[in-house]
Write a protein that binds this DNA or RNA. Structure first.
Length: 746
RNA sequence: GCGGGCGUGGUGGAAUUGGUAGACACGCCAGAUUUAGGUUCUGGUGGCGAAAGCCGUGGGGGUUCAAGUCCCUUCGCCCGCACCA
């Protein structure tokens, strides 16, 4: 039915290339890809933390963890380590970052988000030897220049040292457990109150073995980033400062602003660059040089190294769910992990699964997971995890190049068709889907599948369709067609009870603020809906679906029909030649037609559809106002309407064809070439110039285009309103911007 | 908490990218034709003011001859934060 609706809306897809990603004919190819990634070292297994619901005995998505509790069971979730499949996106961190520069048809905001997501940081790894032991704790820092301001070391709750210390310290063990009860999402971790636990460990400062720092386990240090440990410099990092104030740790400023000799730190850390002080051999150095000098010394003394860290983490693709593509490997007690043989692909999902138990149905299935090892033929266990569904969406665009092929796609067709000229999607995909797809293209290229290096050449982020929401007196959501406006409020259609009108939100089934496309098409027709959607708001912004808006579009389509179909006989016959002499009115309209072609073409190329519609309506207003029936007017009227029909064609294709026919053509409008604007006719001979006095508009003057500055100034000063305002005073200065503005400064 | 974005009349939105704020619509007001219309047509419509004029792009400050546009700051809303897909 969605397909039928799309066809009814007049969307021109090539349905021959349709496929479904849940079809084994599709996912068998990604099983092969995965095995190739495995061979190339781009897929590997790693222990990672997941949200575990101890009652349901199942892994929970972050979304399913509400206030630290499982959404069904209501019990606190635990973090648990699970062995999971990962794809090595970090292998391409630098390439993914650098190549963003070449994506010049992507919105800046998406490129910035990806840049920040990859998060390249240059700095140092520094070893702090542990007093009384022969090992060290290694930290990553971007501010080695502030080492002399260090006042503590903080390690993640799941840092090996934390686990080791917890064994002999029940209170620490409890603290670690508490940190692990928080769930895995970064938002939760960062919003939680910053807490620490002081271990018995003392770390020695790398530049002064006699100076020791306390080692804390802290809930805000991420094991996934850097080394899972930091050194705290409260004076120059806000989070460290908050921590230091809470646990009464020393705050020593070691960077001062360029223009002052010292700095007082109260509750705000000084995080800008400046000049190092109280820092022994770094004293007097500007931040950049101090960083270099500190790292040089660390390297010389063997206590640290120059290092680059990325925020980007490898992509965990294992999911413990039934609906997904099975991961094609077998676990054998003797051989370990063994890939399924190519000849045994695809590994398909069993049809006879039950959902009566929580957890992964594949794991509960009595027989599916029992197989023989492809290598030694002994009984073995099939992998029961399936792929993250982002896996499917990371290469589907390549499949479109060759949708029915026996292989995933032919390299030739992908290299020919790709990259996608124009990709469209919501901003919510800015980092995950779009980055995974960029990674996939790189991984496939490395495995010899394709030769291209980016999936999407042009990118546009589109808004969502929104609609007002309604609730009845019991707070239940109501559909827009169940309510009626009454006075200033709303009432329910069937019993007249009061309805609360809520704000406009993204259309969703749960809030019932959806409008059925079939009903729109039945009532107004596809073209009206298309025109409304194009004219209402720019595509990057959310579209507010309103009855009033549809009505406006519907009236315009009626108006166009009336303007062209009925008086068609009155329009000059098609193919009439342009008279050599056009009167004033005809000349002006002819220019307007060419300007409209020019601007509409430009607007469409830039996806400024709402502006294009406004231009078209302006032209049709002008054509309707055109009076007279001389040869020139008749010709320009015909030329105008005919051009307008061509311009409106892509927006309202069905009406367009019917109008085209009414204009006397047997051929299809869709086969006509796009009109071309005559560059000589898109500029006017005269321009209106604004005259300001002290920046305020006081009048306008008409001048020939490109009049010289002196002439513009003279005309401006002579303008009656302006002259009245100046009242004989001598201007201090006159600024003339040709063809734009004259500003008189008194 | 961090990253990104948005904020302009009663409403959706324009504004040549620092140069006449409010194009084009919706709505509203007045009038005309019909008068069964949710039809069509004409005129008006940012606010205050009788007018001259003054004010006006979430709030505050700044740069500039000139700011919706640039800078600083602040408020509100939206998106993302790696297991929602």
């Amino acid at each position: 039915t969605m397909k039928a609706q799309q066809k009814a809306m007049g969307l021109s897809y090539d349905w021959d290339r349709e496929f479904a990603t849940c079809d084994p004919d599709y996912y068998k190819h990604e099983q092969k890809m995965f095995l190739d990634f495995l061979k190339a070292g781009l897929a590997y297994r790693k222990e990672s933390w997941v949200n575990w619901d101890p009652v349901e005995n199942t892994v929970l998505a972050n979304e399913q963890v509400v206030d630290g509790r499982g959404w069904r069971s209501g019990v606190p979730v635990e973090k648990r380590l699970l062995s999971q499949w990962n794809l090595k996106i970090t292998e391409f961190s630098d390439d993914l970052l650098e190549a963003l520069k070449g994506l010049d048809r992507w919105p800046d905001k998406v490129r910035i988000m990806q840049e920040n997501w990859i998060g390249k940081s240059e700095g140092a790894r520094v070893k702090f030897a542990l007093a009384g032991r022969d090992d060290a704790v290694e930290v990553f820092t971007t501010r080695p220049d502030t080492l002399f301001g260090a006042s503590f070391i903080a390690i993640a709750a799941n840092h090996p040292l934390a686990h080791e210390m917890a064994k002999g310290d029940p209170a620490l063990a409890e603290f670690v457990r508490e940190c692990n009860s928080m769930g895995t999402s970064e938002a939760t971790l960062e919003q939680a109150e910053k807490k620490g636990y002081r271990t018995r460990l003392e770390a020695q400062h790398p530049f002064d073995a006699g100076w020791t720092l306390p080692v804390y386990v802290a809930n805000f240090v991420l094991m996934e980033y850097g080394t899972g440990a930091i050194f705290g410099c409260p004076a120059h990092d806000q989070r460290d400062l908050d921590f230091a104030r809470k646990y009464e740790l020393p705050v020593t400023a070691v960077v001062r602003p360029k223009d002052s000799a010292s700095i007082e730190i109260a509750m705000d850390a000084f995080t800008d660059d400046g000049i190092a002080f109280h820092s022994r051999f770094l004293d007097g150095l500007p931040t950049a040089q101090a960083k270099t000098a500190a790292i040089d010394r660390l390297e010389k003394e063997g206590t640290g190294t120059r290092s680059i860290t990325y925020r980007l983490r490898d992509w965990g693709v294992s999911r413990q769910r039934y609906w997904g593509c099975p991961i094609p490997v077998v676990h054998c007690l003797d051989c370990g992990i063994v890939p399924v043989k190519d000849s045994d692909l695809p590994v398909t999902l069993p049809d006879d699964v039950t959902f009566d138990k929580p957890g992964n149905p594949l794991d509960h299935h009595p027989t599916w997971k029992n197989v023989f090892c492809p290598s030694c033929a002994k009984p073995a266990r099939r992998e029961t995890d399936t792929f993250d569904t982002f896996f499917e969406s990371s290469w589907y665009f390549a499949r479109f190049c060759d949708a029915k092929g026996e292989t995933a796609f032919s390299r030739r067709s992908v290299d020919y068709w790709m990259a996608v000229d124009q990709y469209i999607g919501g901003v919510e995909h800015a980092v995950l889907h779009l980055l995974y797809s960029r990674f996939f293209v790189r991984a496939l290229r490395r495995c010899g599948y394709i030769g291209i290096d980016e999936p999407f050449a042009g990118m546009m982020t589109q808004g969502m369709v929104c609609h007002q929401t309604f609730r009845d007196k019991d707070g239940k959501w109501l559909q827009p067609d169940q309510v009626r406006k009454e006075g200033d409020g709303w009432v329910k259609l069937d019993d007249g009870s009061t309805v609360t009108a809520g704000r406009s939100e993204k259309m969703s089934k749960s809030k019932k603020n959806v409008v059925d496309p079939d009903r729109i098409i039945d009532t107004y027709g596809a073209d009206t809906a298309r025109l409304f959607m194009l004219s209402d708001s720019p595509p990057e912004r959310d579209l507010e679906w309103t009855e009033a808006g549809i009505d406006g579009a519907w009236r315009y389509s009626q108006r166009l029909h009336r303007a062209i179909v009925e008086p068609a006989v009155a329009l000059a016959a098609k193919g009439t030649r342009r008279p050599n002499d056009l009167g004033t009115a005809a000349t002006e309209i002819e220019r307007k037609i060419h300007k409209t072609i020019h601007f509409v073409t430009d607007d469409l190329e830039k996806f400024h559809f709402n502006r294009a519609v406004a231009r078209i309506r302006e032209l049709s207003n002008a054509l309707e106002d055109l009076e007279g029936d001389g040869a020139d007017v008749s010709w320009v009227r015909r030329f105008g309407w005919e051009t307008l029909v061509k311009l409106v064609g892509p927006m309202m294709p069905h009406l367009g064809e019917s109008l085209w026919q009414a204009l006397g053509y047997a051929e299809m409008l869709v086969d006509q070439s796009w009109p071309a604007a005559d560059p000589r006719l898109i500029v006017d001979d005269t321009v209106t110039i604004a005259v300001q006095i002290n920046g305020k508009l006081r009048g306008t003057v008409e001048l020939p285009r490109d009049a010289d500055k002196a002439a513009a100034e003279a005309a401006a000063l002579a303008q009656v309103d302006v002259a009245k305002f100046i009242d004989g005073r001598a201007p201090k200065k006159v600024i003339v911007v040709p063809n734009r503005i004259v500003n008189v400064v008194l």
